[in-house]
Design a protein around this nucleic acid. Structure first.
Length: 322
DNA sequence: AACCAGAGCAACCGCAACGCT
DNA sequence: GAGCGTTGCGGTTGCTCTGGT
């Protein structure tokens, strides 16, 4: 309220930085440091907002930054940390030498999310999609449909990507050639809503017939659950739902990335429940300590000795998170 | 060659927390 | 403790590039 904006809209340049501007900012900071971002553009002779200067420096000009491709090890670190910390990009980036939170965030949103989806893993919960369906299926009737509907909203994009980018063979027959009540024709160009319907069907099937989805199945992102999901959908082939399709290559067939093996390996991951508890701990701690600084909210409990999910030993951490 | 869609990335925005007075 | 300026963070936007048609 009444707060002065960080920069006036007029007389402030926006958009891409030019090499000249970069040079001005870099040389000024090299000489004077980064004491007051509001004054820096004025003193450096830049028509930029201080916030913009800070962003440019921290995300691009800083000499210790690493530019270029993320390595497999870096990706593994991001995925592992994200499974515990969620979207705490700055904390995750702090564990990667020379990477900024913006880098990590962009890489996650453009590459890693899709990579996980392609492996049949929900990038939000880091659980296999089939595991989530199983969890929903175990809920009592009043809750299951609502949650399934809510889950649809969460999974839709990932599932669509999974179904379209992984060249899943929907085996849709030509319209008009299939006998009535046998196969529904879904053309690639108009299958978006139909795909959602398929997902809905899968969820409803899981709710109606939970036996098809083994309960308390250990989380195995490497293959078992993908196979299970695959099998589950195969089970519905030609069923009374009216459509026919199968997942040809869901999961890790083929292009398995090395880090996928250690997302959650055997003894280091007891399963989704434990994972859930970790998030619960985090949430509880956040609730209790609301009002403390963000970094301290991360809390120590997720890194204590009981945390078996954590694949990275604390010795491997570049920066202590606590 | 022109057009289009999607991917990747840089930059911006709004908010929350910190720190100083 | 309140008020205000500064800094940090995460979500979002929009521009550019590239590949496909």
């Amino acid at each position: 309220m009444g707060r002065i904006p960080c920069c006036e809209k007029e007389n402030v340049k926006r958009g891409q930085w030019t090499p000249e501007e970069d040079q001005k900012l870099s040389s000024y900071i090299a000489q004077n440091g980064t004491r007051n971002w509001r004054l820096i553009p004025k003193h450096a002779g830049l028509q930029r907002c201080g916030k913009s200067c800070r962003l440019r420096w921290t995300n691009y000009l800083r000499p210790d930054l690493k530019h270029g491709q993320f390595s497999e090890a870096e990706e593994q670190t991001i995925v592992t940390l994200h499974s515990v910390l969620g979207n705490r990009w700055s904390v995750i980036a702090a564990q990667l030498q020379g990477r900024t939170d913006n880098d990590v965030k962009n890489h996650w949103n453009t590459k890693l999310k899709k990579k996980l989806s392609g492996m049949g893993i929900d990038p939000v919960t880091h659980k296999p999609f089939s595991h989530l369906i199983t969890e929903i299926a175990t809920l009592p009737p009043p809750q299951a449909p609502n949650l399934a509907e809510a889950a649809l909203g969460c999974f839709k994009d990932e599932m669509l990507h999974l179904l379209t980018k992984r060249r899943i063979d929907l085996q849709m027959q030509q319209c008009g050639t299939a006998p009535p009540n046998h196969n529904i024709c879904i053309k690639p160009e108009d299958n978006k809503d139909d795909t959602i319907e398929k997902i809905k069907f899968g969820l409803s099937k899981a709710i109606k017939e939970p036996d098809l989805f083994p309960i308390n199945m250990p989380w195995d992102p490497v293959g078992a659950t993908s196979v299970n999901l695959d099998r589950s959908f195969h089970t519905y082939t030609g069923s009374d739902s009216g459509f026919h399709y199968e997942l040809a290559s869901l999961g890790n067939n083929g292009d398995v990335s090395p880090w996928s093996q250690s997302l959650c390996t055997g003894s280091t991951c007891a399963g989704g429940d434990q994972h859930g508890h970790l998030h619960e701990n985090l949430e509880n701690e956040q609730g209790e300590n609301s009002g403390t600084r963000k970094e301290t909210r991360i809390g120590s409990s997720i890194f204590n000795s009981d945390c078996s999910l954590w694949d990275l030993s604390s010795d491997d951490l570049i920066n202590p998170i606590i």
